[in-house]
C-alpha cells in the first residue's frame, strides 16, 4: 500500500521522556513498598489495591529524586470518578458503592472521613 515513512523520526518519539513509573500492579507495589511498605501492604489487601498508586499520587518516574515529593490529588472529584452513583445496572459501575455528590457531605473532601488506602467502612477515621 502506498504511504510515506519517516525513519529518522522514529528515534525522536522513542527518546521522549516517560513520566509515569513502573508498569503493572505487582511491579508497582514492589517498587513503592521499598520505602512505603506499611501503607502499600494495607492497600494491597483491601479493595483499593487494584488502583495504581500513581492515579492519585501523580506520575513518579524519577521519584524520590525528581520530583522529591509527589502532588497528591485529594480532591472530592477524584473519588467521584468511580463513586458517583449512576443508575446503570448493566455496567460494572453498578458494583462500586456510589453516593449522590449533591447530598452526601457536600463540599467536604472524602479523605476527611474515609481512608483511601483502606476504604472499608469499619476503617473510617
Amino acid at each position: 500500500m502506498y504511504s510515506y515513512h519517516r525513519k529518522s523520526n522514529v528515534m525522536e518519539w522513542k527518546n521522549q521522556p516517560a513520566k509515569y513509573g513502573v508498569s503493572g500492579r505487582e511491579r508497582m507495589h514492589e517498587y513503592c513498598s521499598a520505602c512505603h511498605g506499611a501503607v502499600v501492604k494495607v492497600r494491597t489487601e483491601k479493595l483499593h489495591g487494584i488502583i495504581p498508586c500513581e492515579d492519585c499520587h501523580g506520575p513518579a518516574m524519577n521519584h524520590p529524586e525528581n520530583p522529591e515529593k509527589l502532588t497528591i490529588d485529594r480532591s472530592r472529584e477524584l473519588c467521584l470518578r468511580c463513586h458517583t452513583n449512576l443508575p446503570y445496572t448493566t455496567s460494572e459501575r453498578h458494583r462500586i458503592p456510589g453516593i449522590n455528590p449533591k447530598t452526601h457531605n457536600t463540599g467536604a473532601e472524602c479523605v476527611k472521613c474515609h481512608n483511601p488506602h483502606n476504604p472499608s467502612l469499619e476503617g473510617m477515621k
Binding site: W13, K14, N15, Q16, P17, A18, K19, Y20, V22, S23, G24, P52, E54, D55
Partner: peptide, 15 residues
C-alpha cells in the same frame, strides 16, 4: 511509543 520502547505499558493501560 516512548514507553513501549522502554519496556513500559502505555500510560492509559498503566492507569
Amino acid at each position: 511509543y516512548h514507553r513501549l520502547s522502554k519496556g513500559l505499558d502505555s500510560a492509559c493501560v498503566n492507569a
